[in-house]
């Protein structure tokens, strides 16, 4: 399974989301390869991904960029809330 985390420029926030998504996956005892990406690169990064995690502000751009791909786009409000990330991941892939 592949998960892509997206922020505007692909540094910083997407890296935090990647770190906390990995933590959430551990908690759910799920295995996945998590990659950080920027909005411009998400179409390539998400080509073989099942889930794309991003923020409410970026979700429209991410949806537009990944139109036609199979990945489910999932919104995370608080990037530091591992409970929230675990809960959205569980409902999309668990």
């Amino acid at each position: 399974m592949r998960i892509v985390t997206v922020c505007g420029v692909g540094i910083g926030t997407s890296a935090i989301l990647k770190t906390n998504a990995e933590r959430a996956l551990d908690r759910l005892m799920l295995e996945a390869d998590v990659t950080a990406s920027d909005v411009d690169g998400v179409a390539a990064a998400a080509r073989d991904a099942q889930v794309v995690l991003t923020s409410p502000e970026l979700v429209d751009r991410v949806r537009a960029a990944t139109a036609g791909l199979h990945a489910e786009i999932v919104v995370v409000q608080n990037y530091f809330d591992v409970d929230e990330i675990a809960s959205v991941l569980e409902s999309s892939i668990g």
């Binding site: 922020c7 505007g8 502000e57 530091f80």
Partner: peptide, 23 residues
């Protein structure tokens, strides 16, 4: 510029902004 282009997503948690730009 990043916030003007992409919005306030840098506010990653309540009360906390992680301001950054590209390398």
């Amino acid at each position: 510029d990043v916030i003007e282009e992409y919005g306030a997503y840098v506010v990653v948690a309540p009360g906390l902004a992680l301001a950054h730009a590209r390398p």
